[in-house]
């Protein structure tokens, strides 16, 4: 475990804490894409299939359970909680996210390291995670005003994978010197998708003004 990966995991955890904070304290999920949250549940379910078959460390197992539990909990809140579900921006969360799942499945069947169920599903989870933020970014562009916690949530979510890229550089140089094209390219695409959000987020933070994405 290197510092970049630890920072990455903590940033990812923090993003989830911020989202839960928003949903639980404000009792609102306005501006949050349910579709992105559902995609993340699929990402975690298909990536952590080895949860009960392979043991790496207490940390690894604990974090997998936290990510699975919180992502499922958030979807439950947005779908079934009597107060929160009323605040879901249903009419604006219109991205056709089933296409993202289909494309990721097809790509995972075509490009993978080994053709076995676990490996193909793990590869699928990497491809899906790379594009899972798209419904959320589209929703942000439609939102007139983006509340601070939502902006912070998306920023932290984008930052975690950027830190993972540093972790991969470190591991390549210092550890196994092996090329891991699939996670690397997926991670680069994922981070690149946040590029313009990062630009507007940092600009709004520097100018102390409300975050606004161009339509």
């Amino acid at each position: 475990m290197n510092l970049f990966r630890l920072l990455g995991d903590m940033t990812h955890l923090l993003s989830i804490v911020v989202l839960l904070l928003k949903i639980r304290t404000v009792k609102s999920c306005a501006g949050i894409s349910l579709k992105t949250q559902e995609l993340y549940v699929i990402v975690f379910l298909t990536r952590y299939l080895d949860l009960f078959t392979k043991y790496y460390s207490v940390y690894n197992t604990a974090m997998k359970l936290v990510f699975l539990g919180t992502s499922i909990g958030i979807v439950w809140y947005m779908r079934y909680h009597k107060v929160v579900k009323q605040t879901y921006s249903k009419d604006e969360d219109t991205f056709k996210h089933y296409f993202l799942i289909l494309l990721s499945i097809i790509l995972a069947l075509l490009i993978h390291r080994a053709f076995d169920v676990i490996e193909v599903l793990w590869t699928f989870s990497l491809y899906l995670e790379a594009v899972a933020i798209l419904p959320q970014l589209v929703l942000l562009q439609k939102s007139r005003n983006i509340d601070t916690l939502t902006g912070d949530y998306v920023f932290l979510l984008g930052a975690y994978r950027a830190l993972y890229i540093l972790n991969w550089v470190y591991r390549f140089l210092m550890e196994n010197h092996k090329f891991r094209w699939i996670p690397w390219i997926s991670g680069l695409v994922q981070t690149a998708l946040y590029a313009d959000f990062f630009y507007y987020y940092i600009k709004s933070w520097k100018n102390r003004e409300k975050l606004k994405l161009p339509a």
């Binding site: 990966r5 790496y56 690894n60 390291r113 196994n176």
Partner: peptide, 10 residues
């Protein structure tokens, strides 16, 4: 033995 591409990451 761990496969070369260990899945020890989250």
């Amino acid at each position: 033995a761990q496969d070369p591409f260990t899945k020890d990451e989250l």
